[in-house]
Design a protein around this nucleic acid. Sequence first.
DNA 1: ATTGTTGTCG
Length: 577
Amino acid sequence: MLDSKLRFFLQKCLVLEQAKQVHAQLVVNRHNHLESILIHQTLHFTKDFSRNVFNYAKRILQGLQISTRKDSSFSWGCLVRFLSQHRKFKETVSLYMEMHSSGISPSSHAITSVLRACGKTENMIDGNSIHAQALKTGLCGCVYVQTGLVGLYSRLGYIDMAKKAFDDISEKNTVSWNSLLHGYLESGDFDEARRVFDEIPEKDVVSWNLIISSYAKKGDMSNACSLFQAMPLKSSASWNILIGGYVNCREMKLARTYFDAMPQKNSVSWITMVSGYTKSGEVESAEELFRQMFKRDKLVYDAMIACYAQNGKPKDALKLFSQMLESSSDIQPDEITLSSVVSAYSQLGDTSFGSWVESYVTEHGIKFDDLLVTSLIDLYMKGGDFDKAFKLFSKLHKKDTVSYSAMIMGCGINGKAMEANTLFKEMVEKKILPNLVTFTGLLSAYSHSGLVQEGYKCFNSMKDYNLEPSADHYGIMVDMLGRAGRLEEAYELIKSMPMQANAGVWGTLLLASGLHNNVEFGEIACRHCVELETDPSGYLSRLANIYTSVGRWDDARKVREAMEEKKLRKTLGCSWV
DNA sequence: ATTGTTGTCG
């Protein structure tokens, strides 16, 4: 009688404080066996992750004395599942291991949760041993556990093992089928995936979403779209997948069409659109959407801050960041937010923010991951704080193309050719492939140090890495040759460019011509600049200076007059070439 | 309970 009353009361138990009161009652009345249910209820009704609730539940669990093996297995399972549901995957695995070493046999809840966690963290080693434990404890007859195994092997790319686990399931449900489908898609076996999809007896919305998502990822939007139209019931995720597909193809107009047509937009829809506008550089459109958003979560802020940071608007990024800090207390920046913010500060050349981030991270228990460290390396290198940058660089768990490029780029800006060269050699030895940014850094390092021969060698070696020099790379070469006084050579290099030379490249030649008082190339360069830019006054005054420096006062005066009269560009262009 | 969609560094 009392049991059922308490049970009923426990179901109403939503908040930690209430749970504590009930717990006290249970202890007084020695209802130890109900404490497991209390743990379950408390965790079950905690929608957002709360460290307090978790610690509380764990404390009760450790204090359980007269509980049966079955009770504690159940409670541990609830706790493990709680962590997994709130995406604390590393902790999920360690809690499971703690349970295992306490001699508690796992429940099916615990096994499925920990399998999921292993899948998400790509932890095959623990995944395998958990598989073995499931076999030993006889839980491999449970569909959920078996499906969990299919999911684990699918996610980690062991499609043969996934298939084997799938075949072992006697009563396959749709989730089992979907997990297998996911496996074939993940392993890139698209034909088999399509066969599995067609074979699924009762396709649900996830089955459709999986196959549509794979078409969208391949960029095959016509198939993605026709399947989308064919599916009987669409979820928000279905729409988001389609929108995401168009975003990946830079088809922002179409993405917007579906976004506008979508009946129930969720946060993912908005973020997908904002990040799409970010990649295509349409900052105003992103802003427009951001303004329209009624409820902004952390990820939306992250997306918008990244939008500003990636599109050369660091001040706007910082403004939004401080707005985010002020807006509400439950939105807390994490390592992802901070890496965009650091990138903004880096563009402003403000190194002082680095120490703020470093203390903020330790104070708030934010993960200091390689991505955030890389953005700090960039900040310190650009600001000339090489000691800090090198220290962080050595602390990276895994050095990759981006972190090496950040280092080399910093060397380039600061004219450290030796260091850049050493870093480059190091990365080649480690088989880390350089990319266009790496070479931008290297070339500018050589250019700043006047190492023309090295620069040429480097420029020519780009094709060995299947890299096509961009206009910027040509620009650096022109700068290097120009500074060395090899203007003719620089001009020839520009003429050999496979793409149209931009105003930046010609402007570099103009600058170099001024450095060496060379009228011939100064005129050529200036003519091109005037053609390419709307406001030519800067270029014209440079040319005028060149005329002055060689004593051609008349020409200098003509150019200056023309500038003031604001004559049409065309007229100007013809008058002195 | 197990599956699908979103944000970060050069």
